[in-house]
């Protein structure tokens, strides 16, 4: 596997990608998230928190990747932060604008969205650090079940909304 220092220079459009490990990794088929995954995630938190809070550790590992890859990683991080902000804003919007909902339902939906947003922000940092470290070490980028979890949460909130609207606003 070629190290990050020997990556080919991008063309004028900046669209070429590293050809390490024989092109794109194969899509890894996984089943949905399980309780064990959540436990693993929580167990790994202290180790990761140490990584977040001691930034010098990451700089000592491996070699500095091409700055373009770091910037791409940074933009992905920011995209996840915007996703978090959208969920948080959605939580406030549910509470303020869906006044025809019963209060418990409204607050439950809002809290679900707010908690989802906060988790999204935590995950954004965590995934960014893991990607940065993997790039420094020349490893494959980490895979994650979080997008599946988030999709399930959003789908659950949407379904709950449909049910509430059908039952509560029917008559």
């Amino acid at each position: 596997m070629a190290g990050p220092a020997t990556l080919p220079q991008p063309d004028a459009g900046g669209t070429s990608r590293p050809k390490t490990g024989g092109g794109y990794p194969a899509l890894i088929v996984r089943t949905g998230p399980s309780v064990a995954d959540v436990i693993d995630f929580v167990r790994g938190l202290p180790v990761r928190a140490r990584l977040w809070l001691s930034p010098q550790d990451i700089r000592t590992e491996g070699t500095t990747p091409d700055y373009r890859f770091s910037l791409a990683n940074e933009r992905t991080f920011l995209a996840w932060l915007r996703t978090a902000l959208a969920l948080i804003g959605g939580g406030f919007a549910v509470d303020q604008f869906l006044l025809r909902l019963h209060r418990p339902v409204r607050v439950t939906l809002a809290v679900l969205l707010l908690v989802g947003g906060a988790m999204c922000a935590v995950r954004a940092v965590n995934h960014w650090v893991r990607c940065e470290r993997a790039m420094r070490r020349g490893e494959d980028l980490p895979v994650s079940r979080f997008p599946t979890l988030l999709a399930l949460l959003v789908a659950a909130v949407a379904l709950l909304m449909v049910v509430v609207a059908a039952v509560g606003w029917a008559g």
Partner: peptide, 15 residues
Amino acid sequence: PLAVRTAVAAAVCVI
């Protein structure tokens, strides 16, 4: 590259 401290601070603002 983005400093880890900056990334953590940005996420803390959101949380």
